[in-house]
């Protein structure tokens, strides 16, 4: 599939610091791409550059295989982290205005608003001013304003902040539905659970550079350190014997009649050989690879070096 967004060797500096130092990434059409990184890493600068809000110094940015220009905004729907709409403007008028700025006709905008209102169950709001709505409702309107013009690329910066769990789920479902329809999504968030839940690929940006990227499973495997969890019934003695030279036990935990063991492979035996040798010695109830959470990975990558040394 073609890339909806391709960024190559992007540099941007402000008067007092270098915000981006040769950032490259690409978002494949129909994927959800997680842009991760601590505060001040350069995410906002990158997002603003993609949205043509600020200019970059050097590099290439292509949207749908075309270099970034004033027409690119039609292909992009942008939900900034700091939300805001006109408080004293009618909801529908506001949505039409924003859609028209994206190049949509008034007629098409009205039709799309009607669809979205019925989909998100908000049919009676069109005559109301924004300030008359609750915060969660305002967030819904803001989300609609982002997707109204059928963008090919959605850029969502912390999309779930401010939503109650019910509405957050609603928005998550909508994001998944849009993905299914072919929309590509760039998701910038600190919420690592939603990254694991939604993202196909991630890039982790730190001090203006990409320090980690790839498919979510690949990244997790890379940080996985070959740990496995085995739940069995039997004795720990016979379990340890069965492992032989293939794996080392890190911990045992007994509960009722079962024992949960965490082991790490030594690399001298294949995983299936170990399982084969265990079978017959103990009764295996479950066997799974222990992968780190994105949260752990994030912390390990971006934690200051001194802290890591102290931990080791």
């Amino acid at each position: 599939m073609a890339d909806i967004l391709r960024i190559k060797d992007l540099y941007k500096s402000y008067s007092d610091h270098q915000a981006l130092k040769g950032v490259s990434l690409s978002v494949v059409s129909g994927q959800i791409f997680g842009l991760l990184g601590p505060n001040g890493a350069g995410k906002s600068t990158l997002i603003r550059i993609i949205n043509n809000i600020i200019a970059f110094d050097k590099g290439d940015v292509c949207i749908d295989s075309r270099p970034l220009d004033q027409f690119s905004s039609r292909e992009i729907g942008y939900l900034p982290e700091e939300r805001g709409l006109y408080k004293k403007m009618r909801v529908t008028e506001q949505l039409i205005y924003l859609a028209r700025l994206k190049g949509m006709s008034r007629f098409d905008a009205k039709k799309a608003i009607k669809d979205w209102f019925s989909r998100l169950d908000i049919a009676n709001w069109d005559k109301k001013n924004l300030e008359d709505l609750s915060k969660g409702m305002q967030q819904k309107i803001q989300f609609i304003s982002t997707v109204l013009h059928h963008p090919k690329l959605l850029i969502l910066d912390e999309p779930f902040s401010g939503f109650d769990p019910l509405n957050a789920q609603l928005i998550k479902d909508e994001i998944m539905r849009l993905k299914k329809e072919g929309t590509s999504i760039l998701l910038s968030t600190h919420n690592m659970a939603s990254v694991e839940e939604l993202c196909d690929k991630i890039s982790l940006i730190h001090h203006g550079e990409i320090v980690l990227d790839g498919r979510v499973e690949t990244v997790k495997k890379k940080f996985g350190a070959n740990k496995f969890e085995v739940v069995f019934s039997g004795t720990s003695q016979s379990f340890s014997n069965a492992l032989w030279i293939g794996a080392k036990v890190i911990s045992f935990k007994e509960k009722d009649d079962t024992i949960t063991a965490v082991v790490t492979l030594t690399g001298r035996m294949e995983i299936k050989e170990i399982i084969a040798s265990l079978i017959g010695k103990v009764e295996i109830l479950s066997f799974r690879e222990l992968l780190p959470s994105m949260q752990d990975i994030f912390l390990r990558v971006v934690a200051p070096k001194e802290e890591l040394i102290a931990n080791e």
Binding site: I76, Y78, E82, Y86, L101
Partner: peptide
């Protein structure tokens, strides 16, 4: 009210 960020992404 921050709407300016959305608007100047379009104009």
């Amino acid at each position: 009210n921050r709407i300016v960020e959305v608007i100047i992404s379009s104009v």
